[in-house]
């Protein structure tokens, strides 16, 4: 069978088969397994948690409708990631129809300001949030899939339907912008008082 051609490290085939056959409960369990992935991508693309949940729901419903067409030529996560990113990018296009997705949507963070020595944690969070959301959408989605969701370059290329070289150049550009925009934060010590490492050390 076609769906057996791809490795199944998460053992999701046992849920995929009944889901394809129309079992809503099985699909619900599959959705639960990938909920944090879908919501995480949508949240970091939009910066709004309620909206992210709505977009994730919309993506899961699309996935449910299209599931019979899933042939297993990529992993389910990549296939679902394609639906989630398309749903989110379509939403962003609708919100800013005249703004191409390879341009910056939000103003950049305070890179030009003097280094901040005593940032509060919430301020740090806002700084990172603002910096990520200020990236061009096409670079942002590549960065989110890599940094927050841990997808490999190949998986990102399959998800976004772009060549591996484009993945690497988008990541490079995104990181370059982030280095500039997060300079105040990156100059802070990671572990000392007022540093940020403690807050993020267990995130990966």
């Amino acid at each position: 069978m076609a769906q057996d051609t791809h490795p199944d490290p998460n053992g999701e085939a046992i849920l995929l088969a009944p889901s394809r056959a129309g079992d809503k409960e099985a699909f619900g369990m599959l959705a639960q397994r990938y909920c944090s992935f879908a919501v995480g991508v949508a949240y970091r693309m939009t910066g709004n948690s309620q909206l992210a949940e709505d977009l994730a729901q919309e993506a899961f419903i699309k996935a449910w409708r299209k599931l019979p067409q899933f042939r297993g030529d990529c992993s389910f996560r990549v296939w679902l990631g394609r639906i989630v990113t398309n749903t989110t990018l379509d939403y962003l296009r609708r919100q800013n129809p005249e703004q191409p997705l390879d341009e910056t949507l939000l103003p950049a963070g305070p890179a030009e300001e003097a280094p901040l020595r005593h940032l509060e944690r919430e301020e740090m969070r806002q700084l990172v949030r603002q910096a990520v959301l200020s990236l061009p959408a096409q670079c942002r989605v590549a960065l989110i899939l890599r940094e927050y969701e841990g997808l490999s370059y190949r998986e990102i290329a399959e998800t976004l339907d772009i060549p591996m070289g484009t993945v690497m150049s988008r990541l490079h550009y995104a990181r370059q912008l982030l280095r500039e925009r997060l300079a105040p934060l990156l100059e802070l010590p990671e572990h000392s008082a007022g540093g940020w490492r403690e807050d993020a050390s267990d995130a990966r």
Partner: peptide
């Protein structure tokens, strides 16, 4: 260092209970 700094920004309310509630509503 940049990679570690990015993880300061977490998804609010991303818990197993929330995932369960969302998937139940989805069904």
């Amino acid at each position: 260092r940049l990679s570690r700094a990015l993880h300061i920004w977490e998804v609010p309310g991303a818990t197993a209970e929330r995932a369960r509630a969302l998937s139940s509503a989805l069904v």
